[in-house]
Nucleic acid binder design. Structure first.
Lengths: 111, 111
DNA sequence: TTAGTTCATCGTAAATATACGATCAAGAAA
DNA sequence: TTTCTTGATCGTATATTTACGATGAACTAA
């Protein structure tokens, strides 16, 4: 994985899409987001009961979603409430909307 | 990474979103898709000239995009033309549209 | 204070992903 | 035929991801 060639540069859009996509690239994280987005908004460690995975593993996935900005947590001792970060969610939505709407290009394609 | 707990099950939507997201989770693949989606539709190995990466590496990324169904290739000896797979692109677009439109849930959230 | 609950973090093992050069296969051109 | 071009695949080194159990930190309840 050592890069010997000149480094590739990416646009902000490319980095942003890839970043959000990476957060969504594991089914359990998609599932968590679905749970949080659903009626059971502001879930907490009940995730551990719904998803048969070690608590530490779920915490790790939550961290990934946090760092991607897709969720936010609020400490409510001794628990922690997680929920969708609506603002960033909208941004991500618009980002992907823009990205996918690119793909309906024009003529020129004879594949 | 050994799973000792009972296996987690995922819905088709969860798997599908994660699968497409994984394909989009590397900026160079996003870049490639943008190039293919753009005016330079049906690009080929000119990718190697635009993106300073080893030819084998680019081929590897193309393979990932192929397997995700986002692009398709047509052999045009001695070259290969790649372009967006419009049908699957639409499907992916709808998939993410549906996924992201979930996140604007109702009340109940006091985060 | 002591014990219990909740969740993050640490340490670690195994699996995947990423990048490269080298090689191989298919076909075009000589 | 031989040679060249194009692009896939192989082999490999390193980095990252994923999963777990164990431990630690913060706070509540006895």
């Amino acid at each position: 994985m050592q890069r010997t060639l000149s480094p590739v540069t990416y646009s902000n859009q490319e980095e942003a899409v890839a970043g959000i996509a990476k957060a969504l690239s594991h089914p359990v994280r998609v599932k968590i987001l679905k749970l949080l987005a659903g009626e059971s908004c502001c879930f907490t460690g009940e995730l551990t009961e719904v998803i048969p995975m070690a608590q530490s593993t779920i915490s790790q996935h939550l961290k990934a979603l946090l760092e991607a900005g897709l969720i936010q947590g609020e400490i409510d001792p001794p628990k922690v409430k997680y929920c969708i970060n609506r603002e960033n969610w909208k941004i991500a939505q618009a980002l992907f909307e823009g990205f996918f709407s690119q793909g309906h290009a024009t003529a020129g394609c004879d594949c």
